[in-house]
């Protein structure tokens, strides 16, 4: 079953074509990688998928629905959740509240019930706490539930973002460089958690990673982006030996030198 189908996706910023004629198709249960050098347009694709940006040209069909003109929260309600490359937590709130907010759209108690503290409020809020703690446990954050999010160490902030995204109970999870800034041990642990949640929640995952070797280890299929265009697509071994990919990444190394 196709979860996500992207056709001719294009986004221009002024004169810059950040994303150019991109086609992507992802099936239920897949763990797909999206890689490419700095500024290739990976994050822009996430912003287009989640409704943060409007495509200049092209279509995004998610679970059979065209998401054009949908707001980010509507896309989220369809079953898509994401993390951000530059962590975007609710900084001054507790770890638990961060996760509870993502569960909000599944809450059944209304405003009046909350103001009057009706039994449905008590039941609803209690359920939210239980669910949120379950997600925190997966990412080994349950002991930190009462800490203020911004006081967490970096690696834990990244994990909290994923826990929060999962609390929205998505079918498709978009992870934007989840391992950025982590040490090799943390990265390894994180990749195991990602694989584990995919099984447990029957998730489809699209993962952006800057680091090619890392993404090779976990992804079944990889799309490679360079200057806004898809330059390759296939299994990790195919990508590894693709001359275009090597050139794109070599070019970057030369530029960095």
């Amino acid at each position: 079953m196709t979860v996500l189908k992207v056709t001719n996706l294009t986004k221009t910023f002024g004169g810059l074509k950040a994303v150019s004629d991109v086609n992507i198709e992802i099936n239920q249960g897949e763990l797909v990688g999206l890689i490419g050098p700095n500024g290739a347009g990976k994050t822009t694709i996430f912003n287009l998928l989640t409704g943060v940006y409007e495509p200049t040209v092209g279509e995004v069909v998610f679970l059979g629905k065209n998401t054009r003109n949908l707001k980010p929260y509507e896309v989220n309600h369809l079953g898509m959740a994401r993390t951000f490359q530059n962590i975007r937590l609710f900084n001054d709130l507790t770890v638990l509240d961060n996760v509870k907010i993502a569960y909000h759209s599944h809450a059944k108690h209304g405003v009046v019930s909350s103001i009057l503290r009706l039994p449905s409020f008590v039941k609803g809020e209690e359920e939210m706490i239980h669910k949120a703690i379950d997600f925190l446990k997966i990412f080994k954050l349950e002991n930190k539930k009462d800490e203020i999010a911004k006081n967490l160490p970096y690696g834990e902030q990244r994990r909290l973002e994923i826990a929060r995204a999962l609390a929205a109970q998505p079918k498709l999870l978009l992870l934007d460089e989840p391992a950025a800034g982590m040490n090799p041990n943390e990265t390894k642990e994180l990749m195991e958690m990602i694989r584990w949640v995919r099984e447990k929640f029957n998730l489809t995952i699209l993962l952006i990673e800057h680091d090619m070797s890392l993404v090779m280890g976990v992804c079944e299929r990889i799309y490679v982006l360079d200057y806004g265009q898809l330059i390759a697509h296939g299994k990790p071994e195919e990508i590894k030996n693709n001359p275009k990919v090597i050139e794109a990444y070599l070019g970057e190394e030369v530029a960095h030198a």
């Binding site: 989640t50 409704g51 943060v52 707001k71 980010p72 929260y73 896309v75 989220n76 309600h77 959740a81 994401r82 951000f84 975007r88 937590l89 609710f90 900084n91 001054d92 709130l93 509240d97 509870k100 907010i101 993502a102 569960y103 909000h104 759209s105 809450a107 108690h109 209304g110 405003v111 909350s114 103001i115 009057l116 503290r117 409020f121 609803g124 809020e125 939210m128 929060r164 995204a165 929205a168």
Partner: peptide, 27 residues
Amino acid sequence: NFINSTHGRACISIRENEIAAETMGIN
């Protein structure tokens, strides 16, 4: 009571980070 409920937290999440709130499903 409004603030200390999921609806109040939805409001607070807007203050904290509007883009994150919106992508986490908050209208």
